[in-house]
Every structure is written in C-alpha cells, then in structure tokens.
Design a protein around this nucleic acid. Structure first.
Lengths: 183, 183
DNA sequence: TTGATACCGAACATGATGTTCAGTAATGAC
DNA sequence: GTCATTACTGAACATCATGTTCGGTATCAA
C-alpha cells in the first residue's frame, strides 16, 4: 500500500516535494506505522526496487546462460520493466531521488551483468570496470529514452542499446558480436 | 569563499549533513549574505561547476577540432580535472548531492561531445543518443575510478576509457578508431 | 479469556530553512 | 569631504518536515 501510494504521488507531483505526511495520507496509514516499517521516504523508494530485483533474477534463473558468450538475456527484461514504469522513471530522473533510484538501479545491473561476462577478458580493461561500464550503458540509454524520447517503444530502444554495446563486448568476449546480434 | 568553504566541509563530513549554517560559519559570512547570492546549498554546489565549464571550454578553444574525426581532445582535460578534485568527487558520489553533481557533469560532457561527433553518423543510432552515451561513458569510468580504485592515476584510467569507447566510435565515425588511438 | 501483534493518531521536541530588518562598512562620484 | 550606492551583518522570526513517544484500539490465535 505504501509503495503504491508513493508511486501515485510521484506521478502527481515532484518527488522532492512529497512528504511522509502525504504518503501516509494517500495510503491511509498511521504515522507511527510508517516509521515502524521504513526509515523514511527514501528508504521506501529504495525498497521498491526489491520487486524489480525479484522480477529480474527470476527471469535470469529461467534462462541460464551456460556457454561462454554473454547474451545479455536480462537486458530485454530491463527494457520491458522500464517501459512499464516509464512515467515513474521519468519523474524520478531529475529529482534528488535520482541519486537513490539510479544508484539502486546501477547496483542491480552490475549484479546481473557480472555472471554474464564472467568468461570474458578484455586485454586492457579490468573485468569489474567492464561490468560497471555495461551497467551504466543501460542506464545511459534508459535515461535518454525516458527523459527525451518517451514516445519510442522499448523494443526499438533496446535495439539501439545492443548496437552501442555490441562492439564493446566484441573487444572483450569471444564471439560476443554474434551472440549479441542473435539474441 | 563560499565555494571553498563548501569543498572543505565536503572533505570533512557527509554532504547531506552539511547545513547552510555550517557553510557560512566556515566561510565567516552572514546568513542573509549567503541567501543573497545562492538559493541554497544545492545551488552553491551546482554553480561550482561553472569553474569546470570555463576550464573545459577554454582548452577546447585552444585546440580546435577542424577535421571530421572525433579526437575527444577534451577527455584528457576531464580526467585531469577529476584527478585534481578526486576526493571531492568521491565524497559527492553516494550522497544525495550526486543527483545534482552528476547531472551537471553530464550536461557539461554532452555539451563538449556534441561538436566532436558532429560529423559522425551511426547507421542505426541517433546522434543525440550517441552523444549522451559517450558522456555517460566518461561518467561511468570516472565513478568506478573515484569510488572503487582511487589509487589509479588519471592517465591510466583515461586510457581504459579510450579502450572502451574507441570501438563504439569506430562504428559511427569514419577513421575514429585511428584518431582515438593516436591522440 | 488471554496474550501477542500490529495499527492508530495526536502530541511533541528538534532542527533546518528562508526571510526580514535595522544597523554597519566599503566604494566611488562629484 | 560629503553623499549615495552597494554589499554585508546578525539576530530574530515564522514555517515546515522529521522522527519519536504513548495511551488506546482492532485482530487473531491459543
């Protein structure tokens, strides 16, 4: 209920101007109750990403990536998710909440990418940096999408993402180019 | 004086816990005076980037990029700048201020990159997205650097950045690969 | 019936914000 | 040297969100 209330409010007004009072009014919940569960509105927002995490890794589990080629299976799940909550993301980017939301988003992406590129090895770039780089690549495309071109479909933007990232992977992972083009 | 005071404080304590009172005490300035110049501490932080902008575009002006190949001249200036204020950046990333700092940083990068890739044309990705993508690539490498491996030198990290971005440019810009490798 | 658990909501202390205002210091023109 | 302008001072203030406390209520299970 609290998460839903927060999302409703985010669509209605700027995140920074939302107070705990607004949230509990919207959710029809007592003040003490709120603080019994969450440390504050930022905490509430952060924990909202738990749903996304569950969704993401559930899909990952279904499609295990056995071979050495990074297929970035999860990226389509990510773009589908963002498309679903596009309005929320657009509202979050550009508020002070973005430091929380983007940070959480980034953590998730790195976590999801790490196993994908476990077998890769770039000659001159540490694998950890590569993981962060790809994570931020997703974030980059997503931000451009929701902020400047929300009219585009998830599939189209996803394809642009693949175009941009494929050559990077090609430099680090054997046959990554083909894998990226195929999936 | 106010900018210096804020930087001192950022090194000493977490940005989020810094108040306007702290800043004016440190700078030995009256409260009313502060608000006469800045709308708040976030505004002060934001305007701090004006120095960086000046530095960046001054260098750009000195090294005009006449031909069609994006040399990303400015990127070395960026990494030098970050190295100089590494401690500040590290402190900023991970605070709520990062939404402000990163946003401002990103704007600057996009602004600087746009003319560099003016002559480029990716077959399947809009040029504007490419500009944002490269801007965020810088940000990505910088964040990884200051947050996780601050012991590395700017030159080393800069080289990693080139390695990661070169193949992307190669796909969009004629002879970009060579230009990136040379400069 | 009893105990546990969770929720309510008013009240409160705290602390930061941004504004106001009367008074002071410095700069520059005439 | 005087006057006007401009900028700074610092205390006081109203406002507002925060997070906590506490007595009381509802629900559910043993």
């Amino acid at each position: 209920m609290l998460h839903e209330a927060l999302m409703k409010l985010i669509l209605r007004k700027h995140y920074d101007s939302i107070t705990v009072q607004h949230i509990i009014d919207e959710a029809d919940v007592g003040r003490a109750t709120f603080y019994a569960h969450y440390a504050g509105k930022d905490d509430l927002l952060r924990r909202g990403f738990d749903h996304f995490r569950a969704e993401l890794f559930e899909t990952r589990a279904q499609r295990p990536n056995g071979d050495a080629t990074p297929q970035l299976n999860f990226s389509s799940v990510v773009f589908a998710h963002v498309e679903r909550f596009k309005d929320i993301y657009r509202a979050l980017v550009g508020s002070k909440a973005s430091s929380i939301a983007l940070r959480e988003f980034r953590r998730l992406m790195v976590e999801a990418i790490r196993p994908e590129i476990a077998k890769c090895d770039h000659p001159r770039v540490p694998r950890e940096l590569l993981a962060h780089f790809i994570a931020d690549s997703i974030q980059s495309v997503v931000m451009w999408w929701v902020e400047l071109h929300p009219e585009l479909s998830g599939a189209v933007v996803h394809e642009m993402f693949r175009e941009l990232v494929a050559p990077v992977l090609a430099g680090a992972c054997r046959e990554a180019r083909f894998a990226a083009a195929a999936a």
